[in-house]
């Protein structure tokens, strides 16, 4: 957590105070670095911009790209574009929900898994697509989900 705070401070120090047009790039950069927008980060950004945190939260919730809870150790992204959806992305999502017991945008209690839906990733001929920490799994079937998650669990236990 300390690491995140330091990273946030470093990013904020590169921006000028009161320039509201920088708000979205700033939030994006913080999210990229720390994985999410924490209460503390929003508070600091608010101070820098001279805006109330409600305004920043309102703006950030307008866009799908921002999240407010930390990502899990393994972050899964399911493509929910039209093509993947028709190829059965819905069943994949259902399986993930069943396996992890969380909704899109949430993180499991042990902090290991989080998942979210994404709009089309452009790989329509390979769908359904599941991305695990940046690694693409193509032409997925629901039964694959189980084995992927089992594998990740084992991997995390080893560490």
């Amino acid at each position: 957590m300390k690491k995140n705070e330091k990273a946030t401070d470093a990013i904020i120090s590169r921006y000028k105070a009161g320039r509201r047009d920088d708000l979205i790039p700033l939030l994006q950069e913080i999210q990229e670095e720390t994985g999410y927008l924490s209460e503390e980060a929003i508070r600091k950004v608010g101070k820098l911009m001279g805006l109330s945190t409600t305004k920043i939260y309102g703006l950030a919730t307008f866009y799908d790209q921002f999240r407010f809870t930390p990502r899990g150790k393994y972050h899964l992204v399911v493509c929910n574009g039209t093509s993947c959806y028709l190829n059965g992305a819905g069943a994949i999502v259902g399986k993930i929900k069943e396996e992890l017991g969380i909704e899109p945008g949430e993180t499991t209690r042990d902090g290991k898994f989080s998942y979210e839906l994404s709009s089309c990733m452009g790989g329509c001929m390979h769908g359904p697509i599941l991305v695990v920490n940046g690694k693409y799994n193509l032409k997925l079937k629901p039964e694959h989900v189980q084995s992927i998650i089992d594998m990740l669990r084992k991997e995390s236990e080893k560490l």
Partner: peptide, 9 residues
């Protein structure tokens, strides 16, 4: 005070 704002879209 700006306590209230529109949230989500």
């Amino acid at each position: 005070v700006s306590t209230l704002d529109f949230i989500n879209r």
